[in-house]
Nucleic acid binder design. Structure first.
Length: 428
RNA sequence: GUGGGCGUAGCUCAGUUGGUUAGAGCGCCAGGUUGUGGUCCUGGAGGCCGCGGGUUCGACCCCCGUCGCUCACCCCA
């Protein structure tokens, strides 16, 4: 499709989101923004590309995402950048750069880019909503971030969500655990699945996450991370779990939960949707990253965040319900039908819109029948009819498009009282 | 990166063992006498049958390539 006569389409793995589907996006974003506001987070807008080092140092050079999924490019000044593959690293980079007063609580909505083969629920450009809180290691903030996510999923009506939680410990207790785990795996690597028989020593934690029976069998007889935390990490984790319990947030302890980015310490969590099957059922996740600010050149500052994928939220919604998500109810109030040439419509919609009424009109001087059809399809509750009669009398006919009774459906209003009359109808 | 399925009107799809003017439903547009939508009726516009090459008297149909879509593996939102 590169010849000059063909047209263009969206790049592989990307999608245009148009109405009415975009109404669901608006619902999610607006609801999330409202939650963030109520929890004390302010919006942070950061560049969609960063020095590639921000992501390499942040999510880990050896993670799958950094190794083969980043969109890396050099600009004309030979600076090497990458399109952001996730939200957290950029926010922490901005934190380090500007050093806002702590605790600093920021939320974001952003595209995220990963170069991989698209499939159901996985795209080269997807979109995430998230929050980050930096500058405190109080388990109360862990509880708050997780609870925000939990309540958000409730608010948008999702039913099949489970929360899995684990603690990765801090550098030292995790390193100690990894060597114990490595020792356990080394006793007989041939018992592992085909893939991990070779790869186990590179990153033993990944074996914990393996879904294949042989690995599950071996690891279930081995050491689990929560049992090997140092006293401080153990107490921190216990406080998080107790806090969640006190709020009625049901977390399932999952010692196998190992997330994809290297920056996580202590609390890690993931939300899975049982309504989605198989490999793409993670709809959100996050955790604590107490070393990340330092790795990006800042002062040691603890932080915790959460991110969720808009596309997967909507897939989950679709799997759970036939009804599209419509929390904003963005429908037109009024549609103006003007058969006198259109100039009256021009003035009327301006008056109504200035008064806060959502309205639209027909164009191109189409017939009344045609304009009425458009009015019907617009979803507007009321049609305003202006023909030669109304023009002469200085009136407008107000028609209820939900009514099928011609007599009861219509009433007249004078031009001067129109805005007030409509306002009155809309408050009923 | 690897593998499977699929590319015919804006959308969802038919298209007989290759045979000449490529169809349906929905959507869109216009009508169904004098200013009224949602139902119904009539008519209309709209397709280099993804693209390129090959086989053939003849290709939407068969073969090859290519691009794209889709599903799966790895991993993730």
């Amino acid at each position: 499709m590169s010849d000059t006569t063909s047209s263009f389409q969206a790049p592989i793995g990307t999608h245009d989101v148009l109405g009415p589907e975009s109404g669901q996006w608006e619902s999610l974003i607006a609801t999330f923004a409202d939650f963030a506001y109520r929890y004390g987070f302010s919006l942070a807008i950061t560049p969609m590309f960063e020095d590639v080092g921000v992501f390499n140092r942040g999510i880990g050079e050896h993670s799958e995402v950094a190794k083969k999924e980043m969109y890396v490019f050099a600009d004309r000044g030979e600076r090497v950048y990458a399109l952001r593959p996730e939200g957290t690293a950029s926010i922490v980079r901005a934190f380090v750069q500007h050093q806002p007063a702590t605790p600093w609580k920021a939320w974001y909505v952003t595209p995220a880019f990963r170069y991989e083969r698209p499939q159901a629920g996985r795209y080269r450009q997807h979109h995430q909503l998230g929050v980050e809180a930096l500058g405190t290691e109080d388990p109360a903030i862990d509880v708050e971030v997780i609870t925000l996510a939990w309540r958000f999923f409730e608010a948008i009506g999702l039913r099949s969500i489970r929360l899995l939680i684990n603690s990765m410990g801090h550098d030292e207790c995790r390193a100690a655990y990894v060597s114990i785990l490595r020792h356990h795996l080394a006793t007989d690597p041939s018992l592992l699945c085909d893939e991990h028989q070779k790869a186990w020593s590179h990153n033993p934690l990944r074996v914990l996450d393996c879904k294949k029976a042989p690995c599950i069998d071996v690891t279930s007889r081995g050491p689990m991370l929560p049992d090997h935390l140092c006293d401080e990490c153990r107490e921190h984790f216990a406080a998080v779990l107790a806090g969640l319990t006190s709020l009625g947030v049901e977390a399932e302890l999952n010692p196998r939960l190992v997330r994809g980015f290297d920056y996580y310490t202590r609390t890690t969590f993931e939300f899975v949707a049982d309504a989605l099957d198989g490999a793409q059922n993670a709809i959100g996740g996050g955790g604590r990253y107490d070393k990340l600010a330092e790795q990006l050149g800042g002062k040691p500052t603890g932080g915790i965040g959460f991110g969720t994928g808009i596309e997967r939220l909507l897939l989950t919604r679709a799997a759970e319900s036939d009804q599209p998500l419509d929390l904003l109810n963005r429908t037109l109030d009024v549609f103006v039908v003007d058969t006198t040439g259109g100039d009256v419509a021009t003035v009327l919609v301006d008056e109504l819109r200035s008064a806060g009424v959502a309205c639209d009109r027909a164009y191109d001087q189409r017939s009344m029948k045609s304009q009425m059809k458009v009015a019907d399809k617009s979803g507007a509750r009321w049609a305003l009819l202006v023909g030669p009669q109304e023009l002469l009398a200085g009136e407008v006919t107000i028609r209820d498009l939900r009514s099928d009774n011609f007599e009861q459906a219509q009433q007249k209003a004078s031009r001067d009282d129109l805005v007030a009359a409509i306002a009155n109808l809309l408050t009923k």
